[in-house]
Nucleic acid binder design. Structure first.
Length: 805
DNA sequence: TTAGGGTTAG
């Protein structure tokens, strides 16, 4: 792809940009300011320093030239000069005060509007019908509900609450506060309404996100004989976007042509935006190409439209064109609209380039832009950079917290995601449905069943469980935490199931080894009219692979293109390598990888490595590991798995060699732990753990159990080496692995005959898997172990996985 | 001198 415009590609320049002063913040919310923050333009103050030299003969408020000069200052945005002149005017009349208030409003100095209004009252100058619309607008812009209500009370008191200009302003203000019922009541009680009043209501509904009511209002207005002007049209088009109502949008487009509003740039931009948001990108492009003179808003709408419709290259190419062909300078919103394109392309360099440009232009700090940046970094696989942006933000709202949680979750930074969620709960913000959808995958990966049930209860209480997205996440979380029954109950209770609900429940049964039920559900989803997608086939093929349904797996794989016109992706090929590996056809699996039409990933070679481990083929394991490490230098799992195979084969030199290599690479073995669920608590063990208060009892029970299963002093069935060998080589004794400690603790802490439920953060080792089978037999207890991939149900000396995982 | 409008984040 060609590089974007020069402006955005000066990556070296970006690298030279400092992020902030001092240390990079860690997990705590240490706020640092950007060094390159552009100084905010100073607001004109009410004190009269730096006055321009104005002769005192000019200062009579009745002098027309004073009024003219003041107006010219205000109109040209020179509020400092305007204030200086105003300050020396003797006893300014309401007209001059209003000019000043208008100036501050028009130039966006809303706080100053409130300030000067109070000063006006202090000076006993009566605010009139001209003053209040500006004041109300400022209250709305500042989201200052208290001031707004005070103003409204004052209006009632002085009898100005029926003025049509004031009422229209109040409607907009209340809608912006989110109090649409107040706006509606005001509208209904107005003695007289005009076209502007209707427009205020139409846009008011947009403010609260109610496109349906906005369109109804637009319709009712016409039924009463009003002809929509460009203001109403623009709001109605926004309503069509909210409702995704292309048909209505097209009708309004026809009206625009008929009534000759077609040449208005704002109307044109609104049409482009509506078509982009309603999936009519071709039409939006045609309209855009026809515009003779575009402004930055038009470009932004088109760039955002391309990004929204997943055309990231077109979005970035438009970004270049707007600068090169139209000589247009991007603004903050251009940046915000372009960043999703970088995220979709996972184009870190483009994203960084935009970040650098934004800093150089002084666009930061900016809440929305910063949120877009951290989202981009998360999508580009750089959660650490996202974290940097997040902790440097001056202001954060729920969207930014959610984006940060999403960035962690997207990259599997589950511990950080859970910590962030806990910090959010301590803040004044209330998590919403998006928060819980982002956070539930982290719970699914890390949480105990107890914690899973707690978050499930929390979500139910907040009633976010009614949302299908949230429900789908709850289904998966319950299944991953070991409660398949609840996962099914939640699935059955989802009123509006979507294809993701079905994919999730199929995968839930798959990870619990219930392949047949998973496939029955796949048939049921189709009978109910749901069209399978790519993810469905990942669930289906995983079901076949985990349950060892080889023939069925091939049949579904072949049917993807044939019956559903879905080209198998790398994830589907991965499932097939698992399947071939499972039946021990390792050469076929290797050949399959070499012949597949896609470039193998580390995940694909990982499947071959697992198969080699399960079938004891050390040469193939070495080959697969080589391929993995070529692609991912720091794949710890690969090192560990191969080292374990060498240890089992007694190749201690190779074990040492791998250990050295890991040290050189600075890699550390993931610390394995096992959580055991009790009735009232969860206990966690690591290998050789002696921290538990009942350690002595646990180790005594372990000793007895190991004797019963014939592994006392440990001689592995899969190994020719004794405990002494393991100790010499400083390798953890499998006899004291966390899984066994957790099982023994479960045995002494739960009622006889009840199942013992464990969660393991890494895959079970071969020794512990064998031991768990035997323990289930001698103790006559069902032992359920969820490892990093699947759930193992150990009963009477057998495991549901069929000894393949 | 007064009201309403287009492009922004999870």
């Amino acid at each position: 792809m060609a590089a974007p415009a020069q402006t955005f590609c000066n990556l070296n320049a970006f690298e030279n940009v400092s992020w902030g002063r001092g240390q990079v913040p860690n997990g705590n919310a240490v706020r640092k300011r950007y060094i390159l923050i552009k100084q905010r333009s100073s607001k004109p103050t009410l004190n009269n320093s730096n006055r321009p030299k104005i002769r005192s003969s000019l200062v009579s408020p009745h002098d027309l030239s004073v009024t003219r000069t003041l107006c010219s200052y205000v109109d040209s945005g020179c509020m400092h000069k305007a204030m200086a002149l105003f300050e020396i005017a003797k006893n300014p009349d309401p007209f001059l005060w209003n000019i000043m208030i208008r100036g501050y409003t028009d130039n966006g100095f809303y706080e100053e509007v409130i300030e000067i209004y109070y000063r006006m009252q202090f000076a006993r100058v009566r605010a009139d019908n001209f003053t209040f619309p500006f004041l109300i607008k400022s209250c709305a812009a500042l989201s200052s509900c208290v001031e707004g209500l005070k103003v409204h009370s004052r209006l009632i008191k002085i009898g100005l609450d029926s003025d049509i200009f004031i009422c229209n302003s109040l409607i907009v203000m209340y809608a912006k506060f989110g109090y649409i019922e107040c706006a509606e009541r005001l509208f209904e009680e107005m003695p007289m309404t005009d076209l502007v009043s209707w427009n205020c209501m139409i846009s008011g509904y947009i403010s609260v996100g109610d496109g349906r009511m906005s369109l109804l209002c637009f319709q009712e207005m016409q039924a009463l004989g009003f002809y929509p002007d460009r203001f109403g049209i623009i709001s109605a088009l926004a309503a069509c976007s909210l409702e995704n109502n292309t048909q209505r949008g097209k009708e309004i487009h026809c009206y625009v042509v008929k009534c000759m509003h077609e040449m208005n740039l704002m109307v044109q931009t609104s049409l482009i935006d509506m078509y982009c948001k309603c999936g009519g990108l071709d039409m939006a492009e045609r309209l855009f190409d026809r515009i003779y003179s575009r402004n930055v808003v038009t470009w932004n709408a088109m760039i955002g439209g391309y990004a929204r419709n997943t055309h990231p290259l077109k979005a970035l190419s438009s970004l270049m064109k707007m600068q090169d062909a139209d000589n247009m300078k991007p603004d903050v919103i251009t940046m915000v609209n372009s960043l999703p394109a970088c995220a979709q392309l996972e184009g870190l360099l483009y994203g960084k380039s935009i970040h650098g440009f934004a800093i150089r232009q002084g666009f930061l700090p900016h809440l929305v832009l910063e949120t877009s940046l951290l989202d981009m970094y998360g999508s580009c696989g750089k959660p650490k950079l996202a974290e940097r942006v997040f902790y440097l933000m001056n202001d954060r709202n729920l969207t930014s917290w959610n984006a940060m949680a999403g960035a962690y979750a997207h990259n599997g930074w589950n511990i950080e995601a859970l910590k962030l969620f806990k910090d959010l709960q301590k803040s004044f913000l209330k998590p919403d449905a998006v928060t819980v959808t982002s956070i539930l995958p982290a719970y699914a990966e890390l949480a105990s069943l107890r914690e899973g049930r707690q978050i499930h209860g929390y979500i139910t209480k907040l009633e976010y469980g009614l949302n299908t997205f949230v429900s789908n996440s709850i289904i998966y979380m319950n299944a991953k935490c070991g409660d398949l029954c609840t996962a099914r109950e939640v699935f059955d209770s989802v009123a509006s199931k979507d294809v993701i609900s079905w994919n999730t429940i199929i995968m839930a049964y798959a990870i619990h080894g219930c392949g047949i039920i998973a496939l029955e559900l796949f048939s049921e989803m189709q009978e109910k009219g749901f069209e399978p997608n790519r993810s469905t086939f990942v669930s289906v093929l995983s079901s076949c692979s985990i349950a060892g349904l080889v023939d069925e797996g091939w049949e579904y794989f072949n049917s993807m293109k044939r019956d559903y016109n879905i080209d198998p992706g790398i994830e589907h090929y991965g499932c097939m390598v698992d399947l071939l590996g499972r039946i021990g056809n390792l050469e076929a699996a290797k050949r399959f990888i070499k012949e597949m039409p896609l470039v193998p990933t580390a995940r694909i070679w990982g499947s071959l490595l697992t198969a080699s481990r399960n079938h004891g083929n050390i040469e193939l394991a070495e080959f697969a590991s080589e391929q993995i490490l070529r692609l991912e230098h720091s794949n710890v799992g690969c090192y560990i798995l191969l080292a374990n195979m060498y240890a089992e084969a007694g190749r201690w030199e190779d074990v040492e060699r791998l250990k050295s290599l890991m040290e050189e690479e600075g890699l550390q073995k993931t610390i394995g732990y096992s959580m055991v669920e009790l009735k009232s608590r969860t206990c966690c063990f690591v290998d050789g753990d002696r921290s538990h208060s009942e350690t002595n009892t646990i180790y005594d029970v372990l000793d007895v159990v190991l004797r019963q299963i014939g592994e006392h002093n440990y001689i592995s069935s899969a190994s020719r080496f004794s405990a002494v060998d393991y100790r010499k080589k400083k390798i953890g004794l499998p006899g004291y692995h966390s899984v066994r400690l957790a099982i023994c603790f479960g045995l002494i802490s739960t009622a006889v005959g009840t199942p013992i439920l464990l969660r393991n953060n890494v895959r079970m080792c071969k020794d512990c898997h064998g031991a768990a089978k035997l323990i289930s037999k001698v103790t006559r207890r069902e032992i359920i172990v969820g490892d990093a991939r699947i759930y193992h149900y150990f009963r009477d000396g057998y495991c549901s996985c069929g000894d393949y995982w």
